[in-house]
């Protein structure tokens, strides 16, 4: 269409001038995008592509890679450790994300009230997010200690005579890590929910109040729908982050006992940098990528049914 308007009269038309202007702004926009884009291409996109190629090879870092086709992916299908880490990671995601988001919303609503010490509490709940996972994990290792940990001492006091061995137990180690992660991540989601809550117009609540809506009704029919775009964002980010869980397993348990806390990324790390099987590790990384990709696409698809952007 744009091309056909040219040439007939040989005169510059207004349309053409706008085109040129638009062209120039487009160029400028790309110019501004460029630094970030180059960074993305060089440090993210190309390595990701390279990882895909590597996943079809056997490569120990030192000798040249050897092309093996889909052998690494075939190995994944029958690798019981990999099945275990898939299951652990899924349990971790399902365990952390919903609880963490619900708690974050609760805390955000509480800290959206005019209560004394509000700024202090906001900072306090956000602290775990900025604290180093290494330090946090070391402290939680103490908290979870079977005999002298804070948690079990508290359980003793309320009358639990045989509290779990937490990190020493194949049954309780993963829940322990989930508990710690929830504590660690609540602050981040809380800040996002707080921002969302402050964007909800007060007059909606006032109008509802006049109409006789209860507090619960106001929460369900105003807060939840008005926060849906924030909730969606928090959900997508939390799910992606949770699938990539690594530090907790690495520092707290080294994936043990008996692989009870081994996660996909920790397993990738092991195969890549402890066993020097880059190809096999890359194939796991791509499976993880595929999982996150599918889950995220599904989330975007279904957002229409519950997310409102106005």
């Amino acid at each position: 269409m744009a091309v056909s308007t040219n040439g007939d009269t040989g005169q510059p038309t207004p349309r053409r001038r706008t085109n040129r202007l638009r062209h120039r702004t487009t160029l400028a926009a790309y110019g501004f995008l460029l630094p970030n884009l180059v960074g993305f291409l060089v440090f993210t996109f190309l390595p990701v592509l390279a990882a895909l190629l590597i996943s079809f090879t056997n490569w120990d870092l030192l000798r040249p890679p050897e092309w093996v086709g889909i052998a690494n992916y075939e190995r994944l299908v029958s690798d019981s450790t990999f099945h275990r880490v898939l299951r652990n990671t899924t349990v971790y995601v399902l365990g952390t994300v919903p609880i963490q988001m619900a708690l974050a919303l609760l805390v955000a609503m509480a800290l959206n009230q005019r209560i004394p010490g509000r700024t202090f509490f906001r900072a306090a709940y956000f602290m775990p997010v900025v604290a180093s996972t290494v330090a946090v994990a070391l402290v939680w290792r103490w908290i979870f200690h079977a005999d002298f940990g804070l948690l079990n001492s508290a359980l003793y006091m309320i009358g639990v005579s045989d509290p779990p061995n937490w990190l020493s137990s194949t049954r309780w180690a993963l829940p322990a890590i989930i508990i710690m992660s929830i504590w660690q991540q609540v602050g981040f989601s809380m800040v996002l929910f707080l921002a969302g809550l402050q964007g909800v117009p007060q007059h909606l609540y006032e109008a509802a109040k006049i109409d006789g809506a209860s507090q619960w009704d106001r929460f369900v029919h105003i807060t939840i729908p008005m926060l849906s775009s924030t909730t969606f964002f928090v959900l997508v980010i939390s799910v992606i982050n949770s699938f990539q869980v690594f530090d907790q397993a690495f520092i707290m348990t080294e994936g043990g006992p008996a692989n009870a806390t081994n996660t996909i990324v920790f397993n990738i790390y092991r195969y890549a940098f402890q066993f020097f099987q880059m190809g096999y590790a890359a194939s796991m990384a791509w499976v993880l990528f595929a999982i996150i990709f599918v889950v995220t696409v599904v989330q975007f698809r279904y957002q229409r049914q519950w997310v409102h952007y106005d």
Binding site: T81, T170, G256, R270
Partner: peptide, 20 residues
């Protein structure tokens, strides 16, 4: 050995040491 120890030997020892 590292792969055998980390992926097979240690997880089974864990099962013994935790009494499972």
């Amino acid at each position: 050995w590292r792969e055998i120890e980390n992926t097979i030997v240690v997880p089974h020892l864990d099962l013994i040491y935790t009494g499972e």
